[in-house]
Structure formats: structure tokens, C-alpha cells
Simulated scan of single mutants.
Amino acid sequence: MDIVRTAIGLMSGTSMDGIDVALLRTDGRGFIERGPFLGIAYDGGFRERLKRALDLARPLTDRAARPDELRQIEIELTQRHADAVTAFLEKFGLRSGDVDVLGFHGQTVLHRPDDGLTIQIGDGALLAERSGIPVVYDMRANDMAHGGQGAPLVPAYHAALAGRFQKDGQRVCFVNIGGISNLTYIGAEGRIAAFDSGPGNTLIDQWVEMQTGKTYDPGGEIAGRGQVVAEIAARYLGSPFFQGNIRRSLDRGDFKPLADGEASLEDGARTLAHVAAASIVKSASYLPERPSVFIVCGGGRLNGTIMAEFADMAGKNGSRVMSAEEAGFDGDAMEAEAWAYLAVRSLEGLPLTYPGTTGVSQPVSGGVLVEPAK
């Protein structure tokens, strides 16, 4: 009989806007019982510290290296995750003993799949000590050691959720629009294909912050007042990333931000929203079949301009677009839930990644388990 565990997933993504905390009861296979969710925003000062971590990591070639300042940021990040777990348990009336495992993503500060290098800061042992709960972390490394891109990892969870939409031969594609967007396609016979699809929120966030000091475009309101600058859109969409059949995972820095003065605030935001939507459609053309339905999660689903563009483009290809909420899910919680699910799969030695998701040579498990000191 499969063991059902209670897991908490912790996610801090490429948007660097905060920590997502979600609880899941699962056997790491087909049984999934979704629990509560809590989002905890980073303050502006710590977001700047994380941006500094990207600069500090850029010259590294050893994934275990933590030069002094980067190590300090790692400790700060880990403590904030421990505090987030405490806040979550208190809010929902839970104790540490009620939770079997934490799935800890950490913060990606460098991702160079072509060099077999990925670095996520976050001290799993320190988190286990501070929380009193076993922790599974560093879930990307084993995939890369077996020839994979180290991303995306969420498809295993998407595949588990997709069954209810696969009646009548529907072909489902989950779209996560975070800092970077990614796709998970699940065909009618359960075939999985997944890859990063292009820039999501990162370029828009960078542009709006540079122009206004705000960290994002709420609801896509700024973009909604602008016009697409065709030359800028063509430059992004003409990237070599979109050419050829070999898909690769992306680093936050792979698409350069707009330079100050290239466009008005509104036109820049509108153009980058267009790029975010068009990137998904261009990359979806490499899927085995055209999806019947796209289910959108991540922060980008709240940007009305991105969603309107995406729905229009997909509709012309005969596909339907719906938000995670329309599909019965929580679009904010899905990535954190995935990390809880993956932690349980790791404990069971089940695959986290597959040749069709990361390009790994064979299905592989991964993650490092650390227990709190007794």
C-alpha cells in the first residue's frame, strides 16, 4: 500500500517577489489532496539582496561554492523560509510534527544548462534545524548529472493533475507564467513533453521597476494603455531560442531587459506582454500535438493584457485558454504544491524528471534529504 505523507512545498521563483508555501497530502503518485496556501512577500531590501546574489553567482563554476557575501545571503534566505514555515503552521493551526517533509526549492541564482551547471542557494540542513521538519532540497542536480537541463521540474505534478481533463481525447497543456514561462503537455495517452517557453514576467517587472519604482504591472493595467512596438517585439521573438527543435531551459538573464528610452512606459509594458504571450504560442508549436486546452498558472495569469493576447493567439489555432482557477486549481499555489509533491516522490525514489521534460537520459529521481538534529 502506498504511503500518504503530509508535505509542505516552498517556492521562491525567478520573479524574486516572495515565498509561496503550500501543503499537500500525497503518496507521490495519483493521490493528491490539496491543502492551504500562504504567500509571503519579500521586502524591497531583501529583493535587492537577491539581485546582488545573481551578480555574485555569475562568475562561479562550482555549484557548491558560496563566497562570503553569497553565503550570508543564503543564510538570510533560509531563515526567511524557516520563518515562513512557522507563520504557515501558526496560521493554519498545525505543528511541526504534523508535517512529514518540506520540499525546499531555494533560490536559483545561476542556471547554465549547456555547461551542466545550476546553482540554487538555500541551506537544507539549516532549514531542517530551524523548522524541526525533514527537508528535501537540491532537486535539480541529479537530473543535470544524467544529461538533463535541470528544468522544468513541475511537469511530474502537472501530469498527476491532468487526468480529469483528458476525457474525450483532450490534449492538455499547463502553462506556468512566472519570471520565465514553461509548458507541460500531457497527451491523450499520457505522453509528457515539457520545456521552458520564453520570458514571462521578468522583462515586464524589470521595465516597470526601472520606469516607476513599482515591482510589477498590477493586472497588466500599464500594458493595457500602450501599443506594441513591432521592432522591439521582433527582436525578442527572433531570438535563437525559438529556432530549431532542441528545447533548452532558460536563465533569468538569457533575455536582456529593455534599455531606458527605447519606448514609453506603456508601450514598453505592452510590447513585453505581447512577447510573453507570443513566446508561449511559438514554443507550443514544438509540442507533439496542438493542445486542446491551455491551463495557465503563475503570476502572469493575473496580467489581463498577457492573458487577452494569449487567448486570442491560441484561439486562432483552435485552442482554448483558461486560468488555473477556472480549471479548479489555485494558480498561486501550484508551484509550491509541486515542490511538496516532488519531495514525497524523492522520498519514494520515484522519478522527478523524464527524457521528455528535461532531456535527461532516463527517468531519474533526485533531491537530498536532511533530518533535523535530535
Rank of each mutant, 00 (worst) to 15 (best):
E326K: 14
Q79W: 07
Y236L: 10
N176R: 11
R58W: 13
N182H: 13
A269C: 14
R225G: 08
F165R: 13
L50A: 07
G178S: 10
N201E: 05
L258G: 07
L258R: 08
D251S: 15
R25C: 04
G318Q: 11
A263F: 11
A151P: 06
F88K: 02
T353D: 01
F255N: 10
E74F: 07
R248K: 15
V135K: 03
I8Q: 03
S131K: 09
A194Q: 04
G219H: 13
H111D: 08
L60D: 06
L258Y: 04
S285K: 14
L89T: 06
P199Y: 02
A269P: 03
P59F: 12
D115C: 14
G147V: 11
D17A: 11
T305M: 09
S131H: 05
D251G: 12
L50P: 01
W339V: 01
Y341P: 08
P240D: 15
D55I: 12
R47F: 05
G163H: 07
L77R: 06
V275S: 01
D62C: 09
A338Y: 02
E262V: 08
T215Q: 14
V370M: 09
K167P: 00
Y157E: 10
A162N: 03
G261V: 12
G219P: 07
F92Y: 15
L183C: 04
